[in-house]
């Protein structure tokens, strides 16, 4: 690394400036400006009247707003918990299996990441078609297995719709967890595993005492990425249950709530741009606080492990 001198200043500025300005103006400022718009209201596209925290007061005291907000929030928590369970816990075990030496493990690792490369929209549509009550393959398979009596309209029933949507997202991003955990497991020194095996450790001991502690930081990263992704998720709802999160808003998430309130017409559930910006700001707060809590939690776990 070269110690920068005065004569380098102009050139350093020239090199950093383009990326800096695009990134700041079209990524960071829009979020701050949206927070600003949350303090304004107005009938047109651009909210012009300054109303202070009025939008927030309305959001939390008027039933037509807060019922939708808390509904989307609690759906989102359930959604996050299901996805985290599948991606973290099942994904961890799958990574343990995939990193064993067996014929085809390279291929499996490649294949496991494939769904992640598809668009969420496409994945949602594929699942919707497979689960269709009239021609979907899934119900036909259940019938063939003699399980026909358990068939329900998977995406039409408020008891199952959110679970199905969560499974679809997990199916897509499962491979990302597997990839991250596998690379953590690859990083474990073989001699440690070898020594443990000589001491007679079985696979459970190996997992609990060696593999889990060394991938724990990755569990933290994966969980945080899932949290941010899930609390801004929109495409999957749009594809599978529509922008209202049917049936009866049972699959409405923060992302679909934001889309509807900020960008849809009033008849389609729009609340005006100012209110939409308020929802976005609340989402930003939720994501920031959530990530903070998760970071603190995983840091503490890490310290406990080191003791």
């Amino acid at each position: 690394m070269l110690q920068a001198q005065k004569k380098h200043a102009r050139f350093l500025f020239m090199f950093i400036f383009p990326a800096f300005i695009i990134y700041t103006v079209f990524m960071l400022l829009p979020i701050l400006n949206s927070m600003k718009y949350s303090l304004y209201s107005g009938d047109g596209l651009i909210p012009e009247n300054f109303v202070g925290l009025d939008n927030y007061v309305k959001l939390f005291t008027e039933e037509r707003y807060y019922s939708k907000f808390w509904n989307a929030f609690s759906n989102n928590i359930k959604f996050f918990l299901i996805v985290t369970f599948i991606q973290n816990i099942l994904g961890f075990f799958m990574a343990v299996f995939v990193t064993r030496s067996f014929k085809g493990n390279k291929f499996m690792r490649k294949l496991s990441f494939l769904p992640t490369t598809l668009s969420v929209l496409v994945v949602g549509f594929i699942f919707k078609l497979i689960l269709n009550p009239y021609y979907g393959v899934f119900d036909k398979v259940l019938e063939a297995l003699g399980l026909g009596k358990y068939i329900i309209p998977w995406l039409g029933d408020p008891r199952s719709a959110l679970i199905i949507v969560s499974i679809a997202v997990s199916w897509q991003f499962f491979g990302e967890s597997v990839l991250f955990y596998s690379s953590g497991i690859d990083g474990i020194d073989d001699s440690i595993l070898e020594a443990a095996r000589i001491d007679g450790a079985n696979i459970w001991h190996e997992i609990i005492h060696i593999i889990l502690p060394s991938v724990l930081p990755i569990v933290g990263i994966v969980t945080i990425l899932i949290f941010i992704g899930d609390f801004t998720q929109f495409d999957i709802v749009y594809a599978m249950t529509g922008y209202r999160g049917d049936p009866g808003y049972s699959t409405d998430l923060m992302g679909s709530l934001f889309y509807r309130t900020a960008f849809a017409t009033t008849e389609r559930g729009g609340w005006g741009t100012g209110m939409g910006a308020t929802v976005a700001t609340m989402m930003f707060i939720i994501v920031t606080v959530g990530v903070g809590i998760l970071l603190a939690f995983f840091n503490r776990k890490k310290e406990e492990m080191l003791k």
């Binding site: 079209f26 400022l29 829009p30 400006n33 949206s34 718009y37 960008f263 910006a277 930003f284």
Partner: peptide
């Protein structure tokens, strides 16, 4: 920026593009 959901700035992005 890897951890910032740009989607949350869409209201402002839309108005800027207009």
């Amino acid at each position: 920026g890897l951890f910032i959901p740009i989607k949350l700035g869409t209201v402002d992005i839309m108005l800027t593009m207009l």
